[in-house]
Design a protein around this nucleic acid. Structure first.
Length: 273
DNA sequence: CAATCAACCTGGGTGC
DNA sequence: TGCACCCAGGTTGATT
């Protein structure tokens, strides 16, 4: 579910709400969500640590804790991370609760794919983090870098955009939207794109991600922000999840195909093969 | 190297 | 109403 704009939204909200609070304990309802350390050690290791800051890397959330520890969270498809001060009954599918000195932070995840890691240092030993490519909204994601990656890959461009080692944080929604904005068919081979198309796509990626953030994320199914509220970017999507509806640019019916196992939406007129 | 598929899960939607 | 089946903002690992 959550891609870069959704995780960024949660990060910003949590940074404002829980920075400086102390974790007084954790309740684990589903042990497998703890990737590291052993679930039995998790509670005692995190207890008493203060949240010094909240960061994001790709689709990962990173909580800097006192004592040189880092809590890493990945929400995968349906994970929700919600901070609340009213301690009502926990919703279904809540698998982990952090008790804070003010309020609580809960991980609720219908599909149970989300994972958390509690590691020393800044999360450096979470190998999934080390492999990530550049942040698309940082200066590290240059046009030169992106064009070079395109040039040396025969993969379909959509698969390349979803590869977190190429660029971190793009998921199925924003890949479709970026390709549409750049006028590139999702099944094109990366190395077949012209320099002009590559530049347009580089620009489109940043554009659609910034828009998604401005709208506090896309809520199609399960996504809610750190306050439990839906985002609004679903109302601004041009192709994703809109099969059969007219393209906002040209009125052509939007098509849906399966690419690399993922539902893929595009406008056959704006994005010719 | 690239593509496909199964796994990991639950629940909503659809068609018979 | 029931049931079988497909689908879903992700990622990994096995196989072809």
């Amino acid at each position: 579910m959550p891609e870069l704009p959704e995780v960024e939204t949660i990060k910003e909200q949590l940074a404002a709400k829980i920075t400086g609070l102390t974790i007084t304990g954790a309740t684990i309802y589903l042990e497998k969500v703890i990737a590291v350390p052993a679930p039995a050690r998790f509670g005692e290791t995190i207890r008493g640590r203060t949240i010094l800051g909240v960061n994001r890397r790709g689709k990962f959330l990173l909580f800097d804790l006192s004592g040189g520890y880092c809590l890493v969270v990945h929400l995968r498809m349906s994970g929700q991370l919600v901070y609340e001060t009213e301690a009502g009954p926990l919703p279904r599918h809540t698998h982990l609760v952090f008790h804070l000195d003010r309020g609580r932070l809960r991980l609720t995840d219908l599909r149970q794919f989300g994972r958390v890691w509690l590691v020393p240092a800044a999360g450096a030993e979470v190998k999934e983090l080390r492999k990530l490519g550049p942040e698309p909204l940082s200066s590290a994601f240059t046009e030169e870098y992106f064009l070079a990656r395109l040039q040396k890959s025969r993969r379909r461009i959509k698969a390349l955009l979803l590869d977190q080692e190429v660029v971190a944080g793009i998921g199925n929604i924003y890949a479709d939207e970026a390709l549409h904005a750049a006028g590139v068919h999702p099944a094109r081979r990366a190395s077949d794109l012209s320099v002009r198309e590559g530049k347009a796509l580089h620009h489109a990626i940043q554009e659609v991600l910034r828009e998604g953030i401005a709208h506090r994320g896309t809520s199609i199914r399960d996504y809610v922000d750190a306050g439990g509220e839906e985002g609004s970017h679903q109302h601004f999507l041009k192709v994703h999840n809109r099969a059969g509806r007219p393209c906002p640019e040209c009125g052509t019916r939007i098509e849906k195909v399966k690419l690399g196992g993922r539902g893929t939406y595009f406008c056959p007129r704006c994005q010719p093969l």
